[in-house]
């Protein structure tokens, strides 16, 4: 693992190991440019929040990291993203293998129309991770425990995932993502469709997961960013305006635009 050396941008990141290194990322949807030369270092085993007004490019950037943008025909990505020391846009990279290491949780809970058990087992099965039935069951259980859902669903694993409440569904989706033990989990506004109580549970869970995973979370809510993240990156109109420790971004932003956003003048 390489140590962070981006001294010019943020001296404090030196103490953390960097896992994702994005350099000069430009993204185009057809003729429209969505991201302008974004460079960002994401530290390992920390929660990094991507904030900014709607349409600022934060979700676009998130989807570059596991190449979900590949699914959009007209989308074109320029630049380099290193995960560890590998360029994930290199021609030899297999997106299937890549996405097995970089999980994703979406804005709206999207459990498969299958049983709770099969939802969590899906990734394990396609990647052939569990060698036996008992191992499969064990891994499903530990994933559900990690997602703080086990106690609530252990008696009804065979019921459809869609029968759960919204918050439970989202935790099921998190369990499904961590079942295959990715290194990084990308979260795209994971609590925006949930009520405050369910949101609190998800935030608590994110904090717990930090021990084992690197989390990058897109959020609309600045309070949420302040609560769950250690690092924050502020995007505005396709540009990365500012990036640093959450505390310093929220208390002493360097850029006027950041200042305006966190005080509610743009957004």
């Amino acid at each position: 693992m390489t140590l962070a050396v981006s001294t010019s941008v943020e001296p404090e990141t030196q103490i953390d190991q960097v896992i994702v290194k994005a350099s000069d990322i430009n993204v185009f949807y057809g003729d429209k440019q969505a991201l302008y030369t974004v460079s960002l270092h994401v530290p390992q085993n920390k929660v990094t929040a991507l904030i900014g007004p709607s349409g600022c490019g934060k979700t676009t950037f998130l989807k570059c990291i596991n190449r979900m943008n590949d699914l959009i025909d007209i989308c074109r990505v320029e630049g380099e993203i290193l995960v560890g020391d590998q360029d994930i846009y290199a021609p030899a990279v297999d997106v299937v293998a890549l996405r097995a290491h970089i999980g994703m949780v979406f804005q709206k809970p999207n459990p498969f129309p299958k049983s709770i058990f099969d939802n969590v087992a899906y990734g394990l099965r396609i990647h052939n991770i569990a060698t036996s039935k008992t191992e499969l069951a064990d891994r499903v259980e530990s994933s559900l425990r990690s997602a703080a859902l086990w106690e609530e669903v252990k008696d009804r694993l065979d019921q459809p995932g869609t029968s759960l409440s919204g918050g439970q569904q989202q935790r099921l989706c998190i369990a499904r993502a961590i079942a295959i033990q990715p290194k990084i989990i990308l979260m795209d506004e994971p609590a925006s469709a949930l009520d405050p109580i369910a949101t609190a549970k998800i935030e608590e869970l994110i904090d717990d997961l930090r021990q084992n995973y690197t989390i990058i979370i897109v959020t609309h809510s600045m309070q949420q960013a302040a609560r769950v993240s250690q690092y924050t990156a502020f995007f505005h109109m396709g540009e990365l305006v500012e990036h640093g420790k959450t505390k310093s971004i929220f208390t002493a932003p360097n850029d006027e635009r950041t200042q305006n956003y966190i005080t509610g003048r743009i957004g």
Binding site: M104, I126, R176
Partner: peptide, 24 residues
């Protein structure tokens, strides 16, 4: 959303079709 969930877990397109889309 169901396709995205499956691709996000590293499924190939045919796995997504056979195991998610067709059952759905």
């Amino acid at each position: 959303a169901l396709r995205d969930a499956s691709y996000g877990l590293g499924a190939t397109q045919s796995e997504t079709i056979r195991k998610v889309i067709l059952p759905a």
